[in-house]
Amino acid sequence: MSIIIIASDSYKTGREISEKVAEAAGYACMDRELLKSVSEKYNAPEGKLIRALEKPPSFMGLTSKLRNLYLAYIQEVTLSRLLEDNVVCHGLAAHLYILGVSHALKVRILSDPERLISEMTAQENVARKKAINLIKKRKALRKRWSIACFNMDENEPSGYDLVISLSQIEPDEAVKTVVDTVGYRKFKPMTYSIKCLKDKELAGRVRAVLMKNFSDVKVQANGSTVIVETRALKRDKQKKTEAIKKLAGEIKDVGIVEVHVFKDIFRQAVESDR
């Protein structure tokens, strides 16, 4: 009946808990396997999709343009699957783009620090002290990534309905807590929350199409109305608006497309210098 979104400071821990929760609640489990279909649908390499989900933009890695495009693809496919309900979703950054949907229970699972350290020492083949430092670094990196991509700090507990630390709570107890919580009436889907999710799904589809052509678009949907915000120079405004309306108008379920164009002050500044 509901959606459970699980995020963790360690992919491994999160996946374990997600699988157990799905089993206990009788839900489907959705994880990075989904990236395969994303890769097929949009012809994007899976490795790069994972990278877009993990690392902030850097000189060596993906450009922020490409990363945002990949994230838009992932978001689109994830949202379309979440419409089906009764799903545990993990590893797809859903906790950062599913906001205000009352039947989505968001859970943060904090790994047992000891386990995290031993995992890190084994994985990187380093001493304990170094491993602790690496964990700290990874946490800071995740913060940077979540702020850069979604303008939210994923380490911030207020972004979740439930935060469970496995340092004292056993994984089975955590699973039971999550399943019990999702049973509350408040997590039942309703017309309003389903509409919220549908709006997000439609916005996701429009975004995935538009982002291929324009990197700087923000998309919101309300019923069949789609609102697109973008930047353009004054002379390009009309052309861009028409192009967006045409592209978005062809998408299924889209009725009215509203385009809000802001002045591209940066490019204007650059060009006025010439």
Partner: peptide, 8 residues
């Protein structure tokens, strides 16, 4: 969302 959950 908060009102929706409360109502439910």
């Amino acid at each position: 969302m908060a009102v929706a959950r409360e109502a439910m």
